[in-house]
Design a protein around this nucleic acid. Sequence first.
RNA 1: GCAGGCGUGGUGGAAUGGUAGACACACAGGACUUAAAAUCCUGAGAGGGUAACCCUCGUGCGAGUUCGACUCUCGCCGCCUGCACCA
Length: 875
Amino acid sequence: MNNNNFERYNPREKEPYWQKIWLQQKTFNCDLDDTRENYYVLEMFPYPSGRIHMGHVRNYALGDVVARYQRAKGKNVLHPMGWDAFGLPAENAAIKHKVHPKEWTYKNIDNMRKQLKSMGLSIDWSREFATCDENYYHMQQILFLDMLEEGLVYRRKSKVNWDPIDQTVLANEQVIDGKAWRSGAIVEQRNLNQWAFKIKDYAQDLLEALDNLTDWPEKVRTMQRNWIGKSEGLRILFEIEPNEKTTNKAIEVFTTRADTIYGASFIALSPDHPLCESLMKNNKALSAFVADCKKQGTSTQDIEKAEKRGFDLSIHVKHPLLKDKTLPIYVANFVLMDYGTGAIFGCPAHDQRDLEFANKYKLPVIPVILPPDENEDNFSIADKAYTGIGTLFNSSELNSLSINDAKEQVANELEARAIGGKAQATRETNYKLRDWGISRQRYWGCPIPIIHCDQCGIVPIPKEQLPVILPQDVSFERPGNPLDHHKSWKHVKCPDCDNDALRETDTMDTFVDSSWYFARFISPDASTPTNIEKTDRWLPVDQYIGGIEHAILHLLYSRFFTRAMKKTGHVNLEEPFKGMFNQGMVTHETYRSETKNWLSPEQVEIKTIDGKRVATEIKTGAPAIIGSIEKISKSKNNGVDPDEILKSSGADAARWFMLSDSPPERDVEWSDAGIDGANRFLQRVWKLTFESVELKEQPLDKLEQENEQVIELKKLIHRITNQAGIDIEALQFNRAVAQIYELTNALSKFLPLAEHNPHGSYISTLRLGVEHLILLISPFMPHLAETCWQHLGKSGLISDALWPKVDKSLLIEDNITMPIQVNGKRRAQIIVPKDTQKEKIEQLALHQSAISNILAGKAPKKIIVVPNRIVNIVI
RNA sequence: GCAGGCGUGGUGGAAUGGUAGACACACAGGACUUAAAAUCCUGAGAGGGUAACCCUCGUGCGAGUUCGACUCUCGCCGCCUGCACCA
């Protein structure tokens, strides 16, 4: 063949070329009123940190396959992009580099937009916005005021991490081992008046609706269910023994294990419990204990990991069912005020935390649940609580009841009694979910549109006076919230009475920004937050894609916010995301120098010597240590800059590698070898396309017959086209890629055949195969696909071409290979026509020599024939 | 601490109750080449039998359910993610 004209595919030339054409032709701009079926695909928008990282490449490559595939299926696809642009890092940059957060953020956006565009994503850039755009946060302020009016927002006291040296509030991230990250001060808890959303009102709805989100990963739904944490329990009043310390008559506890009431050996209160707070006034030791408890951050893992500690109040309560028994009251650092009543009864035998506490303070451990296989006389608890099923014992009238029956009986018994005119127990449903505190004492966020007036109280700023714009002239010289120090911005006139008043200086949690952006993309320029006619057609998002780390908070908040927007008349639906997909992380090998410093992949050269991979530090020539594979992070210095790869190997190769090996939901390890492999494949496809075009058809000598090889190839082309489509729809891109490799291999093998038979069906089938191949790769490697498409002489862009049709009649296999097992082990196989009868298969199987040898004349006990699948002979 | 997930060749993975290792990466041998790169072909889970071929073992560990288990159930080990003010 004359290959003189052949030139290797050059992504550096072709990629910018096609990107320019797509932009010029507005290929990916979405006309919302187009009558074709619509499809909304969205990837979680990035935080503009300055540079894209491998996680972004993976996320947006995944989403782009979905977007391009759905376009090829004839849908009108909406695929927008924006920036989650408010947040802490901009303020940190302001402090560190003396650059204004706004300037820093928009500069980062410009850079990252350029980087993302070089990926060749099929994005409608005309809809782009950043959450820090005045227009966006203006709309968010409207939403806030509407929610306030509907009673979905309220003020409450809530805890923050307080840095006593810098006199500032810290994010959990800024607390390291209980100390402030900059000042090093021991962090304290502080209560501040803050704004909160009533997400708890929707707990039951958010829980129930998970059942209908069938296109979400099961694990995400499970995580959300557990996070909402519904539990049915009992609120029980424990009568306080008369004493001089308090006049309180009773303590109310919430329990889900009322059945273990006879095993109760203490009561524990949260340090924030009202009784504890009232007793602190006359009890210095208690005050000191509580102060000590508050010397820790607010994060749950810190609180729960902390050593269990308690303070004996020397007050007792009466056991509700045992006449002469009393229980001591402790204040304990592991009891949370946010959940239940802020007080518990401890049953050490059947709760691990209670047991640790009891063992520490020498409190009785009374087992009351007997495991099924145990004996009452020798069952005891040492340092592991028993939380399994069983029957009651040591429990008087409850003995031998099941856990559930015992719960029921305790509830009935105590409901009927009264303490101080109140029923001693009431059944109650509780949720772990807490209301969403949104106040942040920071500059770079959406201002809360409220004015505090001494006379009028809390005054919402009239909508016509919105937006409340962040002032530009702020200083980060002194610690704390610059808005709070900004006199002319903070001191204002009350909109109602015109007296001196104070502007709310807190801004909103950035989770608010990301809780409704998907709705704004539909009408990014509307003068109301949403255009309800359009959201009716375009919401919910058909496929949402993002990291698993957002499985709970962001998704739950968005689900709540959509309900809130429905209540305030901004949308007509509850669930924002019909389909959800969570991809895994990008990891890379780690490297260390001999002096144990982390080395970046660019600083290391890897060679294979005697089959072993050996690393050397390029700068010094010294050997380096190849470490474990870890999530790409700054601390391990194992990041690879996607920008370098996009520039050197091109977007197609980067995208192909990202999608080819690992299943999208699992972690993927970035490796140079992987990108080389992707490059090779790219060249192979290009070469195959080139050569198939070069084949010149020759006249036929004789009547051409469809050769078996041609029929086989045709079947393969259609089988793979069909399967790849199924795999892409299921977001199993690695499987689609394996199918595509198989097709490429088959076509490469077929090419010489077509060269020797350059006529009729050989050439047409080869070309059919190449055309399908190019269409199949087009969602993955769009630039290469456009180039090949053009080379094949096709008109128009492949980005506008339709997905190849599958000839279903070619998918049917006439013969089936059936393995024959003996006792579950494969011993032979037979090839039979499809749908052969069981009896016939049995006979054929038994007559296989390998089988009859094993049977040695004996009759099998049982023969299992699964039609068209497998035979198993039991002997 | 609580909650969720994952674990299969040298590596990424395929098989979701029915032939474990598809497809790829890396590796080895060969062809082409003055040579290298590129490309193409071949090989390969481990161990054993001279052998077409066959046997044994094998999906983190231990038990169980089943004619049959990578897949389901229980227990353990290891790793990862989230935990409410990082986004």
